Simulated scan of single mutants.
Amino acid sequence: MRRTIISALRATTTVGGALVGVALALTSPALASPALAAQAGAAGFPDAVQAGSTWTARTGGRMLVDNGADMDQLSAGGKQTLLAGEAYERKYGSYSKDGAKIVYSDQGTKGFGAQIWSMDSSGRNRRQLTSLDTEAFGPELSPNGKKIAFQTQGAIWVMNADGTGSRKLSTDGYYYGTGISWAPDSAKFVVTRGQIDERSGEPYQLEIVTMNADGSGETALTKSGGDKNSPAWSPDGSTIVFSYTTTKAQQQGDTYDLWTIKSNGNGLKQLTHTKNVSEQDTVWAPTGAAIAYASWAEQTETSPRVMKAKADGTSVTSLDATGYPTAWS
């Protein structure tokens, strides 16, 4: 089952000899996780978001949410659509550390399909940074503001923050799954890496992998099999949270839960245990005290809801917003 890969990518294929983008962004995830919403309401958490509210001042900061077409920015003042798009055009927005800039992917005027762009956090001063002959998506600004890591189909790239000096860092012969997250010191980032089935061309055995900013020192933190995606490095550098379904769970058709592992590869721990509800695309609060993520009930929902929890996975509440959180500033 490739649910998380399908839900997070726009793949490419060939039709009539021409490359085209295949919209995969929302073929499986879903909205409004009723199981988690009921859990939050029953527990009576004091920071629970009331019906009709988009955000609360107590949550703090701003969050970018990708609903599969638009890029929304949530704040105490409500929801603002920074960029509007067409269905299945994910934006993958990422803030600079000071919150002043956003890098994202969008349909380019040059090159093929989506390219990497930058803009002010107000939505002004849009500028195209890449003009590749393949789709580019999932950009992440390094905390020191010097580099942008991004993806093409199954590959990892890094370039300077102004769009110059782009080069592929990933190892040929492997598949690199969705999600890139920098360590706080900008020296490394974390991704997922998988084997490729020679017969089907499908990835499998995805593991959590760290890589130096120059592409060297690729190190697998997990060797547990199953399917993993969307790793996110904590602001203090100690922990990586990711979405994971074990090999056994895959065989049983179970859903994806959130797990954590220490950045040194120790202490693998399961955060959520939500039967028939999947979670992925986690972002950390700047303080490291909370996380937000996309959640959906596999059998009943068709779009993801944005949920918030403490960093240990407890005190789950709904932010009453739909889509995939991509950054929290």
Rank of each mutant, 00 (worst) to 15 (best):
165 G>W: 04
168 K>W: 02
168 K>C: 08
169 L>F: 06
169 L>P: 03
180 I>M: 11
181 S>N: 01
182 W>Y: 05
182 W>N: 06
183 A>C: 02
185 D>C: 12
185 D>N: 15
186 S>Q: 09
188 K>T: 13
189 F>S: 12
190 V>Y: 03
191 V>P: 00
193 R>Y: 06
194 G>A: 14
194 G>C: 07
197 D>C: 07
197 D>E: 14
197 D>T: 07
198 E>Y: 09
199 R>E: 14
200 S>K: 10
200 S>E: 04
202 E>M: 15
203 P>W: 14
204 Y>S: 13
204 Y>A: 07
206 L>P: 00
206 L>H: 03
208 I>L: 15
211 M>C: 01
215 G>R: 10
215 G>K: 08
215 G>I: 02
216 S>D: 07
218 E>R: 15
219 T>I: 12
220 A>M: 00
221 L>T: 04
221 L>N: 05
221 L>C: 11
223 K>E: 09
225 G>I: 09
225 G>L: 08
226 G>N: 11
227 D>W: 12
230 S>E: 12
230 S>D: 14
231 P>C: 04
232 A>I: 03
234 S>D: 03
235 P>M: 05
238 S>E: 09
238 S>N: 09
239 T>Y: 06
239 T>A: 10
239 T>N: 10
240 I>Q: 02
240 I>L: 04
240 I>P: 06
240 I>H: 03
241 V>I: 15
241 V>D: 02
242 F>P: 02
242 F>R: 09
243 S>Q: 02
244 Y>P: 06
244 Y>S: 07
245 T>W: 01
247 T>R: 11
247 T>I: 08
249 A>L: 01
249 A>T: 02
250 Q>Y: 00
252 Q>H: 07
253 G>K: 04
253 G>A: 08
253 G>C: 07
255 T>I: 03
256 Y>C: 01
257 D>A: 09
257 D>P: 00
259 W>C: 01
259 W>S: 10
260 T>Q: 06
260 T>Y: 00
261 I>E: 00
264 N>M: 02
265 G>M: 12
265 G>Q: 11
266 N>P: 00
266 N>I: 04
268 L>N: 05
268 L>W: 13
269 K>N: 14
269 K>C: 03
270 Q>P: 01
